[in-house]
Design a protein around this nucleic acid. Structure first.
Length: 627
RNA sequence: GGUCCGGUAGCUCAGUUGAAUAGAGCAACAGCCUUCUAAGCUGUGGGUCAUUGGUUUGAAUCCAAUCCGGAUCACCA
């Protein structure tokens, strides 16, 4: 049980015996005492003052006296200042906590709850390599899965690979037209990059084809267009020419319509139809190119430490929602329009009418997602299903959950969208069409290079073998990168400036890794004298501050899981490392004043190292023995 | 236009279930290595918590309005 829970219980007991009323741990606030006051934890008295109609001073003193008198092992002193009751915990309590846990590798982690959770993350398209945005997604998904495990849940990590559709057909078509049979082997390119290059080539070609057509359309010549696109174009162009305030947006719409009317896009659509019909040549090419991509992805995943228990492929799941549509119609949750298309009315919930099946009978994105959600549940029967997806899909995920709830699916209430903000450049969003995307492989290379540079400058590991150095550079580079992306609250968008390299000082991964290496250096030297005396001794200020922080790890793990927020752990671990470093510079472990002091400090070192390694592990970050 | 999210130090961010004088890191400046790793430690300066009004003993935090930035509102995925 955490210290705060213990205190809460004792305060409730005290209140019950001193006053009339119904008290529970939630009746008052308990917080850590601010450093400028005497004490460890503080009861905020205002809510009780109101309830009991007593003066803050009177209540504080009565409560403080009672607590100290009746909990000799727990409280040693109290003081009351302006409605705050500051309580000092006995050193004996802290020391015994340390002694019981200093070699417990599972300190802070919860026992099994029997709950099953699925975390879906990464979910790449197979037409281009992973970029910085995917990294945030991967790190978040992996980390939240581990955090949930640490809280006693059974977790399944999954990935849905978007391996079919217009996007991959674009790469396929460009490769057919311009590839001359190039393969990763003949070009020496990583498979995902090779396929991505053809995607870029397609987009360039498309741009060229669309440019004269766009000019023609903007000049009012709509030859070659018919039906709905024609009506839209005529309207939009007219509005642009009339100086509409939204001219820029309208022009984008026009551009999109024009692009879709080019011969190249016709070819892509033909190819997609062939794929759907099962055309052998098309399927063979599709399979071949996807395999190149998977080989590339696997290399990157291995490097960044992403892994999945189960991988779904969209080509296998995209038809799954179809039978649900009929079922939803039968239940009266969906309705059919005259043209045969199927919809759900969400206007009562403040949303719109949403299409779930096209008039031609094919299913749309949301329908596929409903189908996949059912499929997942049938196989895993999980209590919660977390989707790590960017915030541009907030609306989509809201709709998905709502539809599942209206269909009364057993998995519906467990759907949780872990939404995260985009990673932007100082110039704005990354745009693949404009080539401003920060490539994941390049970035990892860069981080390892910088790590090597720093390490060489400091010259502390000159005896390392080449292999050990390589490992260290990777550990440090990934530590810096992962920490950088995870230290910010997920839902906030963040800016990455490629000009300023990611830092290695201050609130960073390497700072914490360094702290760990420092501790290990001591423990290597002092291992022989470990723990022979009883470290019953009074705590110095910095010793206690460190210990108080160590104790909080369990609560931090709970908070991180409850909020689905790894940045809570990043923040905590940084503060812990800071507390350790302050302690370290002020007090010697090896040359401690007495043997008992030495042992106490060694135990502090040991538990700090355990928690740093554990916490960083939950962020997917390794900690080195030396650096 | 509707809905949602954000706005805190020069920069990047904590703090948002209301509570003591709003905190870190980076950058700037001043100190600290004959002693366990200086990727460290200690200190200084830096704030109209977007704005206005409200609720409250008490508001960065809750409510309302406004301003700024972003996302989304496809028979795309």
């Amino acid at each position: 049980m955490s210290v705060t829970s213990v205190i809460q219980v004792q305060v409730v007991k005290a209140l019950d015996s001193l006053y009339e009323g119904n008290f529970e741990p939630g009746s008052f606030q308990l917080s850590q005492t601010k450093p400028e006051f005497e004490g460890d934890y503080t009861v905020v008295l205002f809510s009780l003052v109101k309830q009991l109609k007593k003066s803050p001073d009177g209540l504080g003193n009565e409560l403080g006296q009672y607590l100290v008198a009746n909990n000799a092992g727990l409280f040693t002193a109290y003081n009351v200042i302006k409605g705050f009751l500051n309580l000092t915990i006995t050193d004996a309590y802290w020391v015994s906590l340390l002694q019981q846990n200093y070699k417990n590798p599972n300190f802070g982690k919860a026992a099994a709850t029997g709950k099953k959770v699925m975390v879906e993350y990464s979910s790449p398209n197979t037409n281009k390599p992973l970029h910085l945005g995917h990294l945030r997604n991967n790190f978040l998904g992996w980390s939240i899965a581990e955090i949930l495990k640490a809280n006693g849940n059974t977790v399944t990590k999954t990935c849905i690979v978007n391996d079919r559709g217009v996007h991959i057909c674009k790469s396929m078509l460009a490769w057919q037209k311009m590839g001359n049979g190039a393969t990763p082997a003949t070009t020496g390119s990583k498979g995902d990059h090779l396929v991505g290059d053809y995607y870029v080539q397609f987009e360039n070609e498309l741009k060229q084809q669309a440019a004269p057509l766009l000019e023609q359309v903007l000049a009012g010549n709509f030859t070659g267009f018919e039906g709905e696109p024609l009506t839209k174009l005529q309207l939009f162009v007219q509005r642009i020419n009339n100086g509409d305030a939204k001219a820029a947006e309208l022009k984008d719409e026009v551009k999109e319509l024009v692009r879709n009317n080019t011969p190249l896009m016709q070819e892509v659509r033909t190819m997609l139809l062939k794929w759907e019909e099962g055309d052998a040549d098309t399927l063979a090419l599709w399979k071949q190119m996807n395999e190149w991509v998977y080989a590339g992805f696997n290399e990157t995943y291995k490097r960044i430490g992403s892994n999945f228990d189960k991988t779904y492929y969209e080509s296998n799941t995209y038809l799954l929602g179809k039978k649900t549509v009929q079922w939803g119609l039968d239940k009266g949750v969906f309705f059919k329009k005259e043209d045969g298309s199927v919809w759900i009315d969400l206007t009562a919930d403040g949303l719109d009418e949403k299409l779930v099946q096209r008039k031609d009978g094919t299913s749309v994105y949301i329908t596929q997602d409903i189908g996949l959600a059912q499929d997942k549940y049938n196989e895993y029967k999980m209590d919660q299903s977390i989707y790590v997806i960017g915030d541009e899909q907030n609306y989509h995920m809201k709709v998905l959950k709502l539809i599942c709830q209206k269909l009364d699916l057993p998995n519906a209430d467990g759907i949780y969208h872990l939404s995260y903000g985009m990673v932007e450049l100082p110039t704005g969003r990354m745009k693949s069409r404009e080539g401003t995307v920060v490539d994941a492989d390049d970035l990892v290379d860069e981080m390892e290079k910088i790590s090597a540079q720093h390490t060489e400058e400091l010259g502390k590991v000159k005896d390392f073998t080449t292999e050990e150095l390589k490992q260290l550079y990777h550990t440090l580079g990934m530590g810096a990168l992962k920490f950088y992306l995870l230290r910010v609250e997920p839902k906030k968008k963040m800016v990455f400036n490629p000009e300023e390299s990611i830092d290695f000082h201050g609130f960073t991964g390497p700072f914490i890794q360094y702290t760990h290496a420092r501790i290990k250096s001591i423990l290597r030297k002092e291992a022989a004298t470990l723990f022979t005396n009883a470290p019953q001794t009074a705590l110095l200020k910095l010793e206690k501050e460190l210990l108080v922080q160590l104790e909080q790890y369990g609560s931090i793990l709970q908070q991180a899981a409850a909020e689905h927020n790894p940045s809570v752990i990043a923040s905590y671990t940084f503060h812990l490392a800071k507390a350790y470093n302050s302690f370290y510079t002020e007090h010697s472990v090896g040359n401690a004043e007495t043997p008992a002091k030495k042992e106490l400090r060694l135990q502090l070192c040991q538990l700090t190292a355990i928690i740093i390694a554990s916490a960083m592990g939950l962020l997917g970050i390794q900690v080195p023995e030396r650096m």
